[in-house]
Design a protein around this nucleic acid. Sequence first.
DNA 1: CCGAATCCTACAGGATACTG
DNA 2: CAGTATCCTGTAGGATTCGG
Lengths: 125, 125
Amino acid sequence: MQPGTPDNEWREDCAPRRVLDLFSSKWTSMILHVLDTRLEGCARTGVLLRSLPGISKKMLTQTLRDMEASGLVIRRVYGTVPPAVDYTLTPLGKRFVELIDLLYGWGRDNADALDALKAKKGEGA
Amino acid sequence: MQPGTPDNEWREDCAPRRVLDLFSSKWTSMILHVLDTRLEGCARTGVLLRSLPGISKKMLTQTLRDMEASGLVIRRVYGTVPPAVDYTLTPLGKRFVELIDLLYGWGRDNADALDALKAKKGEGA
DNA sequence: CCGAATCCTACAGGATACTG
DNA sequence: CAGTATCCTGTAGGATTCGG
């Protein structure tokens, strides 16, 4: 390890950080997952809204836009009177969901171990 | 949502959320990665501190404690005069790093696509 | 129906100082 | 050396409202 060299790969513009940003958004991975698992890769705003209990319109749009910018989804607008918009999973997004699902699977696998954390966080009384 | 069936799997106590919590911590995955990649699965506090430029002592300890509670690392204390403590990666933790690295690999693979997001975020002027 | 703008709160996370 | 306590800030993200 050279002196002066940022020996690590955490320099702000590195892949890990980018992934971290994507993944740590509260909704990104959920949207992707739902889109992939239950909506066959494409859905309108309203459908997504209803498929993600707890999400607000604002967060949905905002997250979706970021995802679009990252190339995870494609946004299509139809110039109809009642505006229609839908979002389609890209191959890049699809690949990402797969990885996400791996993580989820791991979580499910070790739910008991992870419960400890929940317990610790929960203790407030 | 009826009292009957939350059709989705995002109920607060589900695996996805737990994983999300873990992963979205700013340092958890980095610590795990460094621990696994460069420190052979075990290191003392000071070493970790130096291996993770930018992290504060507080965040290191705090994150490490959470990780311990989740069973990702084992904390060992030696009752010596200058206190010595080290953290060892558990098999669970090791498995998690592997998945993390997959994500990182994906990020590296598609760095260009993800740059879009960075660009968008960066525009403030 | 879709999205943007505004406002507001909670909390992650950084700096610092102190204890054992 | 390791850890805790305190203080402080940025910001993610929720509720609401307006606009096309």
